[in-house]
Amino acid sequence: MKKTLFLGLASALALSLASPADAAGYAKQPKDVEWSFSGPFGTFDRAAMQRGFQVYKEVCAACHSMKLLSYRALGEKGGPFEYVKIGDELKHFDNPNDNPVVKAIAAEQVITDGPDEVGDMFERPGRPADRFVSPFPNDNAARAANNQALPPDMSVIVKARPNGANYIYSLLTGYYEPPAGLNVPVGQYYNAYFPGDLKAYWKGEGHAPKGGFISMAPPLIDDIVTYSDGTPATVEQMSKDLVTFLAWAAEPKMEERKRLGFGVMLFLGILALLLYGSYRTLWRDIKH
């Protein structure tokens, strides 16, 4: 009886967890990608993160903000530029303010600061402690520049979408040719993984295709960036790198979390064994 009940409750929990990712519309199931950071032992692939940051900086950052991140985070523990190659050795900087790569990335930006002594605002180069500079001053400006569509902030986007890493990868690589019979509105793009309902736009036979219309033009084309480590910049490669970077940005403490988790589980496991032993010993002579 106990077993049945427990199984029942467990399956109920599982069922209630399985809230349908495609309830919003009828998009294709995201591709199943093998990520360096998945599973209890997963960590972020540093090289992929660095390449991913390059893709963000050179492509995505034109429209998408990452307001929750600071430049210093790039050089903090677990960040993409925690270790910097100087000459032949990897050097670690405890204080990201001293990290030359992070300093250089921040210094490329222009920050409006102030007011100064006479009350005027002034511009200065960015510092590691500054937040990522947003491409638009506010949401209305972003909409106005993007045909009324608001490019979402990407700081936590991997956590803000169901099955986030796979979904974003699939979306970036899912700009397929629209099937014949699908009327794509001007300024919109067909994407097989974007949730939507295409019934009203479908003139072909059978069911309307899965997917939806997205306002973002296909952002990646082969070799749109040049990787300094010589990795071929295919759309798939860039998408994978970018998602690795975004996954880190959404959950920068993941590696620390898993590491601590193993310690805690080990401690609790030993404690459980000890307690079970004492329980059996204590109750040995009691009929119950």
């Binding site: 898993k258 988790g261 193993f262 805690v264 589980m265 609790l268 496991g269 459980a272 307690l275």
Partner: peptide
Amino acid sequence: VIFLMLFAAFVFF
């Protein structure tokens, strides 16, 4: 402690 292990599995993993 067994319950905390389930709890920790969620929190950490």
